[in-house]
Design a protein around this nucleic acid. Structure first.
Length: 351
DNA sequence: AATCCGGGGGT
DNA sequence: ACCCCAGGATT
């Protein structure tokens, strides 16, 4: 049997029932694809459900405040996705009269939509003849054919795109089903670790299995150097149930999210060093204040490229600028690092 | 071509 | 620790 047909048989027996698989509405498909970029299905699924409930139509998403969109996105990471999602929703709703672009080429022009996502929408919604190449497809083809070209190079991307297109040419059934199938196969069967080779429908033709290179494929070049940063968050207490927060702007992590006033330092600092810090003194103008540490051992918040050694400091003052009621703080989108602290700090009523 | 951008889960 | 995840944008 040809590869695509055997793959389809596997898929029909093993596919998960996922909400975006029972629709061809481009709004729903687009939303799911943006959410699933570099994100596991299990992690994205509850967010998808929340968004569909909050924004049944793309016009609802377009009309929402960016704060509400980010708040619903909170915890999913890669927040530029949420910002691009919102901008694209407004563009489609107001400039295109709610009608999604109808081809791969046009979809590719949307913010936050690259080669994979444009292909996915075009395939699933319009059954356009386009090949999908995601992390699963890289893995399946690299193992099946024993390809050692690194997948994160220009050459690798071109090669695997070509392989995917050649395979698609041999598909004599619904192409969108085929595209779903190869990704599902990579996600559930030809997994990164401990793939189910013993019961694999392709274990006789798989080059990597024959040459004992399953664990070595796909090849990916990278030296991830993790940068250490030291955050000191000022939890400012004014005595009237308010605290100061600020919005992160500019480049860097967590753009658009809120946090406590931040004093970043080169290393872990003492209370004395904090009191003398220049940025601290810009935040705390009064002479009379008290400082108390919340967590003597820093909270280590781990991101892909950064480890954040974080200390929260209680600073009691008489008056402070840029404060908001503790009662309203749960409405602001915040990083998980801040949310975890708030879950300890806030009274139940304010969560 | 490299680097950045999150958070969660697996090994 | 390190890897990966229905990638894309920026430098």
């Amino acid at each position: 049997m040809e590869f695509p047909n055997a793959l389809q048989n596997w898929y029909l027996e093993n596919r998960r029932d996922l909400p975006w698989r029972s629709t061809r509405d481009p709004y729903h498909i687009w939303l799911s694809e943006i959410m699933l970029q570099q994100t596991r299905v299990e992690q994205g699924l509850p967010y998808y459900t929340k968004f569909i409930e909050a924004f049944p139509e793309i016009e609802d998403l377009a009309a929402a405040s960016s704060e509400k969109v980010l708040k619903l996105w909170q915890g999913l990471g890669y927040y530029s996705r949420a910002r691009n999602l919102h901008e694209t929703a407004k563009y489609v709703a107001y400039e295109l009269n709610g009608k999604f672009p109808g081809s791969y080429k046009e979809l590719l022009k949307l913010k936050g939509v690259g080669d994979y996502t444009a292909s996915a929408i075009a395939s699933f919604c319009y059954n356009e003849k386009v090949a999908l190449v995601d992390g699963n497809v890289f893995r399946v083809f690299s193992r099946l054919k024993g390809i050692e070209t690194p997948i994160n190079t220009t050459e690798g991307k071109k090669l695997f795109k070509k392989l995917a297109e050649e395979a698609l040419e041999k598909v004599n059934f619904d192409r969108s089903t085929y595209n779903q199938a190869i990704m599902e196969f990579g996600a559930l069967h030809c997994k990164p670790a401990n793939p189910a080779c013993e019961v694999c429908p392709f274990n006789e033709e798989c080059v990597a299995l024959r040459t004992h290179k399953i664990k070595d494929l796909p090849v990916k070049l990278r030296k991830t150097r993790v940068k250490k940063r030291y955050f000191n968050y000022l939890v400012i207490e004014t005595g009237n149930e308010e605290t100061a927060i600020e919005k992160r702007t500019g480049k860097g992590i967590w753009h658009g999210l809120y946090q406590f006033p931040l004093v970043e330092t080169k290393k872990k600092i003492s209370e004395k060093e904090l009191r003398q810090n220049e940025l601290f003194r810009q935040y705390i103008k009064e002479k009379d204040f008290s400082v108390e540490i919340f967590n003597p051992e820093p909270v280590i918040h781990k991101l892909s490229h950064q480890h954040l050694y974080t200390t929260f400091w209680r600073v009691q003052v008489k008056e402070q600028e840029n404060t908001v009621p503790l009662e309203s703080i749960s409405a602001y989108p915040v990083p998980v690092l801040i949310q975890n602290f708030l879950n300890e700090y806030l009274p139940e009523d304010y969560k």
